[in-house]
Design a protein around this nucleic acid. Structure first.
Length: 296
DNA sequence: CCTTGAACCTGGGCGC
DNA sequence: TGCGCCCAGGTTCAAG
């Protein structure tokens, strides 16, 4: 479920296992994910120390001690899990539950710290994910990030900013908000949820939230607040579910969330005293869930 | 520029 | 038990 909040939760879960550790080796079990893995990635990572884990939108950033950063995107089905050496067991035997299909373990970070070894494994059945490596100092110029919009919870997102971007847009709100060049990190679920929270129809044209003089209308300010709230609530929920998930199977990337409209076709609208029924429509090839009664 | 649709992959769920 | 079909959290490219 990797939209921004899920990637942030993955980052928080991986940080204690990865930060400060030495990469003994990076094992690439196939030459490509969605794209070919960069030539020399394994050689470049081996022997480096991980200094920090970061995130930009839905991208996980693994900072190495040589000024390089491994860029990892989980696509639709990517996840990480951590395997530790079992206490008192034969060295080299790693404890984990075999809940993931190991055919799809594509990249393995072999890590160590003070003799203690562990593995961080990237699993991705659909292989829509990808990895790359770039200079940390010029990350903003790499193709992935070059035209990317602001983070949905950061200071750069404001109703004034959205007004400038929505002003001439005839696109429906749903597709506009999925555009990573406008806001980076929203995906199908949280766009549906933010529109429901702000009682805006996903079909409404983006420019109808901007006044003739180019200023944000009040409803655009409400949308901006809803986006912020939906994302920060989801990050908080991910953080609270993290402990349980690590304890059960060591995997990071999929979490239980409950949504107001997403994947709730035919359910009653959860808004107090709203009589609507959640509908599913298709916009730009993606499912949109919304309440036709309270979202206008 | 704008928009939609297909493509990339595998797996799960459902109807028959 | 199996087969065929539809669907899925993202991104990118081609075509209209």
């Amino acid at each position: 479920m990797p939209e921004l909040p899920e990637v942030e939760t993955v980052r928080l879960g991986l940080a204690p296992a990865m930060e400060g550790r030495l990469i003994d080796s990076l094992e690439l079990r196939r030459p490509d994910l969605r794209f070919p893995l960069p030539k020399g990635l394994a050689q470049e990572a081996a022997g480096r120390r991980i200094v920090a884990l970061g995130r930009r939108a839905k991208y996980l950033l693994i900072d190495l001690d040589n000024g390089r950063t491994i860029i990892s995107h989980l696509g639709m089905s990517g996840s990480f899990r951590i395997e530790t050496e079992k206490e008192g067991a034969t060295p080299g035997i790693f404890h984990h539950e075999r809940s993931k299909d190991e055919r799809h373990d594509h990249v393995v970070f072999h890590l160590s710290s003070a003799g203690e070894k562990l593995r961080v494994i990237y699993n991705d059945p659909r292989r829509f994910g990808f990895m790359d490596i770039a200079d940390r100092a010029s990350l903003d110029e790499v193709a992935f990030f070059k035209d990317m919009g602001p983070e949905p919870t950061g200071n750069a997102l404001s109703s004034a900013y959205l007004a400038t971007r929505f002003r001439d847009k005839t696109q429906p709100l749903k597709t506009a908000l999925l555009d990573q060049r406008l806001i980076a990190g929203l995906g199908n679920i949280y766009v549906c949820e933010a529109l429901w929270r702000s009682q805006l129809s996903p079909l409404r044209k983006a420019r109808t939230l901007v006044a003739k003089n180019g200023r944000a209308l009040p409803r655009l300010a409400e949308l901006e607040e809803a986006i912020r709230a939906v994302i920060s609530d989801a990050i908080a929920a991910g953080g609270s579910s993290l402990r349980d998930h690590i304890r059960t199977d060591g995997s990071l990337g999929y979490f239980q969330h409950s949504f107001s409209v997403y994947d709730r076709e035919e359910a009653p609208c959860p808004r107090q005293s709203c009589t609507g029924i959640v509908r599913r429509i298709v916009q730009a090839g993606r499912s949109t869930f919304y309440c036709p009664v309270c979202q206008k």
